[in-house]
C-alpha cells in the first residue's frame, strides 16, 4: 500500500514534468517572436534585442528550459503581456472567486447527484430511471455558456428572482465592510458572522453554481447508478437478502458503502472539468475569477497569462487524478 502510494506520487511528478514540458514547448516554440510581442508593435530592432536578453530568449533552448523550470519552482509564471504584472500575483487575486463556485458546484453534485443515482438504480427501467438517465446524459450535453444565459433569462428577466451577475449587490459593497480572509465570500462572511453579506453572496452564487454543477451532477448520478446496480447483483447482497433483511437496510447499510469508491473518483475527476467550465461562464455572470481572466487573456492573445492559467489548471488536474487513484487504492478489496 505505502509502496503503491509512493509509486503513484512519483508518476504524478513525472506527469507534471511532462505537462510543464508541453507548456514550455507551446510557450517558446509555437509563438513567433515572443520578444517582439512583449515590447509591442512599434518597437525598434534594438528594443526587441534588449527584450530578448531580458526574457532570456537569447540563450540556447536547454538553458531556457532549465530556467523555465527553476522559475516555476519559485512560483514565478512570468509577466502578463497585457498588464506587465507578475502572473502569479494576478492568479492569486482571481483564484478564490473561482474556487468558491467550483466548491459550491461540487457540493450540489454530491447533494443532488448521489441521491438521483440511488433512486435511479432502485427504480431500474421504470419511469424515474429513464427520466434520470435522460437528465444525466442531457446535463453533460448542455453547453454551459448557454445554460448560463438561459438561467439569466428565466430567473432575472422573466421572474426577477435572482441577480444577473456579480458576487455582491452594489448596496452591500457600499454599506457593509466586506471581509477578505480567504477571498471566498461565503466562507469569509460566515467566519465574521456577517449574515447580511452571506445572504447576498449566496443569492449571487446560485445561478453560476447551478450552471457549473450540471455537468458533475449528471456524471455522479450515472456513476452511482451503475456502481449500485453492479453491487446489488453481487452474491453477498443475495445472501444478506436471503436472511430476510429489508431492502432499505440492504441498500443503505450494505450496498451503498461499496459504491463510494467509484463515485468519489468521478467526483474528483469532474472537478477538473468544472474548473475549465468556469472559463466559459464567468464572463456571463461578471464573476471576477480565473475564467474571466482567461477570457480577457484570450481576446488580447496574452499568451503568457494563458499558459500561466494552463499550468495552474493542469497541475490541479494532475493532483485531482492522483487523489482519485489514491481513493481507489483505499478500497480494501483491491490488492496492490
Amino acid at each position: 500500500m505505502k509502496k503503491y502510494i509512493f509509486k503513484r506520487i512519483i508518476t504524478g511528478i513525472i506527469v507534471l514534468l511532462g505537462v510543464i514540458t508541453i507548456t514550455f514547448i507551446m510557450a517558446r516554440v509555437i509563438p513567433s517572436d515572443p520578444a517582439a510581442k512583449w515590447v509591442g508593435p512599434k518597437a525598434t530592432p534594438e528594443q526587441i534585442a534588449m527584450a530578448e536578453k531580458e526574457l532570456g530568449l537569447d540563450k540556447p533552448m536547454p538553458v531556457q528550459y532549465a530556467n523555465y523550470i527553476r522559475d516555476l519552482l519559485k512560483g514565478n509564471l512570468g509577466r502578463s503581456l497585457r498588464t506587465k504584472q507578475p502572473i502569479t500575483q494576478e492568479l492569486a487575486a482571481y483564484i478564490p472567486a473561482t474556487l468558491e463556485i467550483v466548491i459550491f458546484g461540487f457540493l450540489l453534485a454530491v447533494i443532488i447527484g448521489i441521491p438521483l443515482g440511488i433512486y435511479s438504480a432502485k427504480q431500474k427501467d421504470k419511469m424515474l430511471d429513464h427520466v434520470s438517465r435522460f437528465f444525466s446524459i442531457g446535463s453533460v450535453s448542455l453547453p454551459a455558456f448557454w445554460v448560463a444565459l438561459f438561467l439569466q433569462l428565466v430567473f432575472y428577466k422573466k421572474l426577477g428572482l435572482l441577480p444577473l451577475g456579480g458576487r455582491l449587490s452594489l448596496e452591500t459593497t457600499i454599506f457593509y465592510n466586506v471581509p477578505d480572509i480567504t477571498g471566498m465570500l461565503l466562507l469569509d462572511s460566515l467566519i465574521t458572522s456577517n449574515f447580511m453579506i452571506f445572504k447576498d453572496a449566496f443569492i449571487h452564487i446560485i445561478l453560476p453554481g447551478i450552471t457549473i454543477a450540471l455537468y458533475p451532477i449528471g456524471l455522479v448520478a450515472r456513476m452511482t447508478r451503475s456502481a449500485l446496480l453492479e453491487v446489488l447483483n453481487e452474491d453477498y447482497i443475495a445472501s444478506i437478502r436471503s436472511y430476510g433483511v429489508s431492502e432499505t437496510k440492504v441498500l443503505w447499510k450494505y450496498a451503498l458503502k461499496n459504491t463510494l469508491g467509484p463515485t468519489a473518483t468521478v467526483l474528483t475527476l469532474s472537478l477538473g472539468y468544472t474548473l475549465v467550465n468556469t472559463f466559459l461562464i464567468e464572463t456571463i455572470f461578471s464573476w471576477p475569477g480565473l475564467g474571466n481572466y482567461v477570457a480577457t487573456a484570450v481576446t488580447t492573445l496574452d499568451y503568457p497569462a494563458i499558459i500561466g492559467v494552463t499550468i495552474f489548471s493542469a497541475t490541479c488536474y494532475v493532483i485531482l487524478n492522483l487523489i482519485a487513484d489514491l481513493i481507489i487504492a483505499l478500497d480494501p478489496r483491491i490488492r496492490l
Binding site: V19, Y273, F279, I306, T310, A314, N321
Partner: peptide, 23 residues
Amino acid sequence: MRITDMFLSFPPLLLAIVLVSLL
C-alpha cells in the same frame, strides 16, 4: 504511452484553448 499520458493530463478543452490562442 508516456507522451500520451502527458497529453491526457490536460483537460481537453483547456489544451484546445491554449493551442488555438497560440496558433
